[in-house]
Amino acid sequence: MALKPTIFKFIISLSDLDRDYYDTLHLTVAQHPSESLERMMARVLAYCLNAREGLVFTTGLSTPNEPDIWQRGLDDQLLSWIDVGEPAFERIKKASRQAREVKIYSFNQKSEVWWQQEQAQFKRLPVKVARFPWPAIQQLASLVERSMVCSLSISDATLYMAAKLGEAEIPCIELQG
């Protein structure tokens, strides 16, 4: 019998001062059995940084040909492809031909090494790449509850999360814009 995902419910009061975007997000996030809390929270942050109508979580890890988050137009054209982690160059090259916008958010301990190795290739592609520092993601993951109400403020590419169990400050470092 296959393991089932763990379901998390978030109510996030989002104040994105960088984009003048304000909303209350009601997110239901399925954590894949092989996914860490840190990766799941990096997905939530990526969603919040790009929040807009039509943006959805995909089946992600369960379906290798899909990003973690995407937005499709009314004509089913792929508008945004958002990956979390350290994807292979070929995957992103293909995505950049399919979607109008491609973004990558790396977040873990190997993120810097991955970027040093892949940077030259990614520079040839019209993609945006950012990194969340690993210690900040670990701090954020320590605040997670299965059902949580929190606030997230984004200012000068820094995310400030306040939740019942504490607060976290997560810089979003632009590597390629």
Rank of each mutant, 00 (worst) to 15 (best):
V56I: 15
L17P: 04
Q176G: 10
R91L: 00
V127S: 06
M1P: 09
N65R: 06
R52I: 06
Q71M: 09
E112K: 13
S96Y: 03
R19I: 00
S80A: 14
D156M: 09
V144R: 00
D68W: 02
R146N: 13
I173C: 05
K128L: 14
Y22C: 02
I170Y: 01
V44L: 03
S111G: 15
E169Y: 10
T28M: 09
L125I: 01
Q98V: 06
R52C: 12
R43F: 06
Y160F: 15
D83S: 12
A2R: 11
E86F: 08
M1F: 11
R97L: 13
A141R: 08
L159E: 09
W70A: 04
D16F: 00
L79Q: 10
S96V: 05
P5M: 07
G85K: 05
Y21F: 14
I104A: 01
A99K: 02
M1G: 13
K94Y: 12
L25R: 11
T63H: 11
E86Q: 14
Q119L: 04
A120K: 12
E86G: 10
P133I: 01
T158N: 07
E112Y: 10
L152W: 03
V102D: 03
V127D: 08
E118C: 10
L55T: 05
K103H: 12
D83R: 06
F122N: 04
K9C: 03
L125H: 00
E169V: 15
P33G: 05
A157Q: 14
R131M: 15
A120T: 11
W115D: 04
L17G: 04
F10D: 10
L79Y: 05
E90H: 08
A157F: 08
F89C: 01
P67L: 03
S147Q: 14
I82Y: 03
S151H: 06
A130G: 10
E174M: 14
I82V: 08
S15D: 15
G166R: 03
F132M: 13
G54L: 01
G166H: 04
R131Q: 15
A95P: 07
S36N: 10
A99G: 01
S62V: 02
Q31A: 06
P135N: 06
M40N: 01
W134G: 06
I173Y: 01
Y160W: 13
E169G: 07
L27P: 04
K123V: 14
H26D: 15
M1Q: 11
A95Y: 07
P33Y: 07
S36L: 08
P135E: 02
T24I: 14
L159F: 10
S142K: 10
N50L: 07
W70R: 06
E112L: 14
R100A: 12
G73Q: 13
F8V: 04
E118F: 07
F57P: 08
D76N: 12
A2T: 10
L78M: 11
L37N: 07
M148I: 04
V144G: 01
Y105D: 02
E174D: 13
V102H: 04
D18W: 04
R43P: 09
I92V: 07
E169D: 11
R52E: 15
T58W: 02
